[in-house]
Design a protein around this nucleic acid. Structure first.
Lengths: 292, 292
DNA sequence: CGCTGTGAACTTATTCACAGCG
DNA sequence: CGCTGTGAATAAGTTCACAGCG
């Protein structure tokens, strides 16, 4: 009964990072050791502004939030490339959405565009970061240092985006103390204590299904209120804890559904041709040319 | 431009084209008394069934498809545990949705329940697998054998669910020939040839951003029509190729938004109206009151 | 009875289309 | 002009609530 969404639910127009290059170049988003409130030039009053942003936050549709994160990544890249201004049309293409939707999404966070011109890239970056609560760091704990956990612990995309991996846990005592990506692994028994002490805000569960709920309970007890769950189980959490689920098998199955549907359409209502895969040079399906 | 759906965008219903929904029923039928549903109560026809399933497939809401995959996983677990029958209420709890939604979702694939009793677990597993196109194997290729690629190549969840990892690719020539998870790594130059020969249906992109589009083009040219993209870029693909994107940084940022929103509510004008029941523990994190 | 299956009501999200500002 | 910002119109998705079957 607590909030629990999964990546495939209402929205997740993703963007930002998985095995990124941006990883290494820690800089980018103007905030090098400066104040945690790092605001790009050209914005206004700190205190009142925050209140406004926050007030609006409550009204932003869930679906729009996911897209804002995408826009942010695209805008960050543009900023790195020295782009100063961009129109809703251009940005929408880069983000893979239509321009009306983009403008609507941006309107939820305020009016930061200039009519007849477009948006100032840096201003937008700053506003979106603020809206998403990225003006502060969110310490991350990864539980389950298997293949996936390793990948996550070493993933540069997290720290470079304000999500430092501050703690690692695993049930295997042999891993205790061993550093992965520069952070030592603790035993899962220590989750509550360590998360509390380090003030972890986001927990990432990369364990097998069986252990996941126990790990989750520990994280919650340790004060973690946001969980990214890779384990194929539905976690039970209190109402004040937010869970997002990433289920690779589910993603694959959704893709599978679309293949089936397409094959179907291609072969008409009757006779589903089973061995269609045999075609080695399929450049068209439904008469549509594939290759570019 | 091509179709590119991110997990969560609407799709399935062919929008403009197939206007009418629910396969089969005559729209003219207006009397609520008589069950207008085209499908006979018995529902069993083996062969014709496929046609029915497929026809309905076109009408299944995108959101429901994602959930069907979740139900399938839960049902498979139940089946393994020897559970024969389950009610919508029980299944919905296990899947983390409400029972009305679950019944509605199941109704999209047909009527396989028994009133007063519930659903036969195995029958449901079979029907969902059929709907999702899981009655055939879908060979998977993973491109980018870095941390994430390694994890994916070794991830047991794929093969066990009908998605054998049949090919691996990386730009690094040093990796060539080296087996990862029992499958040798090819150079990315071979993507088109190998994917064509092996009849890969799903490509997983786990490369850094820069290489992603080129890899994607290769996969498409090699006949791959479904892509799971972990790279933080919006891929350009032909209309008949389906892309789903998984973006970890975006997931984190969505979580971040919710932390910010919650912190805000807690410290805002009125007190948080939380008071769930499950977690009476810690009341503050980072100095912010969470629950009352 | 108990539980499914489903129209109908309602909520959320997307798209349209245009007023209005720079 | 060109482009933003946004109400109003549509479409998609969720929940309700209950008829009807086993």
């Amino acid at each position: 009964m607590a909030t629990q969404r999964d990546a495939g639910e209402s929205v997740v127009t993703g963007t930002a990072a998985a095995a990124s290059d941006r990883a290494g170049e820690g800089a980018a988003e103007g905030d090098p050791g400066a104040s945690p409130d790092a605001r790009p030039a050209g914005t206004a009053a700190p205190d009142a502004d925050v209140a406004v942003v926050r007030a609006r936050a409550r009204a932003i549709p869930e679906a729009a939030v996911a897209r804002l994160a995408v826009y942010l990544r695209v805008l960050s890249d543009l900023s790195d490339d020295g782009v100063v201004t961009i129109s809703s049309e251009e940005l929408s293409v880069a983000a893979g959405v239509n321009s009306a939707k983009l403008r609507k999404d941006l309107s939820y966070i305020g009016s930061y565009g200039t009519r007849g011109v477009g948006y100032d890239v840096n201003v937008l970056v700053g506003q979106i970061e603020r809206t998403l609560g990225l003006t502060r760091k969110h310490k991350v704990a990864v539980v389950g240092i298997g293949n996936l956990g390793h990948a996550l612990a070493n993933y540069g995309g997290f720290p470079s985006r304000g999500f430092p991996v501050a703690a690692l846990f695993d049930v295997d005592p042999d891993l205790e103390g061993i550093p992965v990506g520069g952070v030592p692994v603790h035993h899962t028994d220590e989750i509550v204590r360590v998360c509390g002490e380090l003030e972890i805000t986001i927990g990432v569960i990369a364990t097998p299904a069986q252990g996941a709920q126990a790990v989750c309970d520990g994280l919650v007890q340790g004060g973690v209120r946001c969980i990214l769950n890779f384990a194929p189980v539905v976690l039970q959490v209190p109402d004040n804890v937010e869970v997002r689920k990433v289920d690779l098998a589910v993603e694959m199955q959704i893709l599978s559904f679309h293949v089936a549907r397409r094959d179907d359409a291609a072969s008409g209502p009757e006779a589903a041709r089973v061995g269609d895969g045999a075609n080695p040079d399929r450049d068209e399906v439904n008469g549509v040319v594939v290759s570019k």
